[in-house]
Amino acid sequence: MLPAVAQESKFRPTETYLARRRIIARLMSFLLFMAAAASVLVTTGIVYVLVSESWNFFRQVSLLEFLTDTQWTPVFAEPRFGILPLLTATLWAAGIALLIGIPLGTALAIYLSEYAPSKVREIVKPLLELIEAVPTVVFGYFALLFLTPLFRMFIPGLTGFNLLVPGIVLGIMILPYVVSVSEDAMRAVPSSLREGAYALGMTRIQTSVRVIIPAAFSGITAAYVLGMSRAVGETMVLAIAAGQNPNLTGDPREGAATITAYIVQMAMGDLPQGSLAYESIFAVGLALFVLTLFFNLVGFFLRRRFREVY
C-alpha cells in the first residue's frame, strides 16, 4: 500500500541512526588514513636512515669514485670503494634469473590460464606455491652442493662459487611470483575478448599471444617487475653459492659477491659502528634501493603507457 503522505513512511531513517552512521563513517576514514600514514612513515623512516648513514660515507668517498672505481676492498689498509664489482654481480645473477624466470613463467601462466583444464590448474598452482615455502638457505645449499658440481661436469671453467648456478636457481625461485601474478592478470581478461578472438578463427596460441597478453599487459609487467625486484634483492642463495669475493667479471662462470651478499657478510661481522666499512653497508643498501626503485618506475610507466580499459 502506498503511504498517504511521503513524510509518514515508516522506512525513513531516524535522526539517531543517521548520527551514528556519520560517526562510524568518520571513524573508519580516520582509521584508514592512519593505516596509510603508518606505511608511508615506515617507508620514509627507512629511506631516512639509509640516506643519513650513507651521507657520512659519501663525505669521505666521492660519488664518482663509488660509481666508477673497479675495486671493492673496504677492509684493506688502503680501502677502495667502487660498487661496480658488486653491482655487476647483482645484475648478472638477476639477469640470468630473469632469462629463466620470465619466459618459463610466462609460458606457464599462458598454459595455466588458457590451456589447462581446471583440474590441472588446481594441482599445478599449489605445487608452484610450494616453491615459495622452501627456505632460501635450502636453495642456496642446493645450488652450491648439488647443482654446481653437476653443472661442472658439463660446463668447463665453472668454478665452485659462480654466478650462473645461483642465477638459475633464482630464476626458479621467482617463478611462482611471475606465474601467479601474470596468470591472475590473464584470467582477469574478460571472456568477451577471448570469445571475440576465437570467433575470428584464432587458435589458442594466436588468442593468447595476440589478444590475451596485450590485454593483460599491465599485470604481466607488474609480475616481471616483482620478479626483478625479488631477484635483485635476494640474498641467501647468492651469499652461499656465488661466494663472498668482490670480483668485477664479465663471466658468470666465476664467483662474485653481490650487493646483498656483501651486506650480510659485513652485517654479520663485528664492524665498529661509525667506521667507513660499516657505513659502506648503508651506501650499497641505498644503491640497491635506487636500483629496485628504478625498475619499479620503469614498470610503472610501462603499465601506464599500456594500461587498457576493457
Partner: peptide, 25 residues
Amino acid sequence: GMVFQKPNPFPKSIFENVASGLRVR
C-alpha cells in the same frame, strides 16, 4: 564470423583490430 552484444575490440589500434582476422589467416 560473429559480432557480440557488447562491443569487444581488442586492446590494439583501430587498424590492427580490423587486420587481426587477416593476420591470423
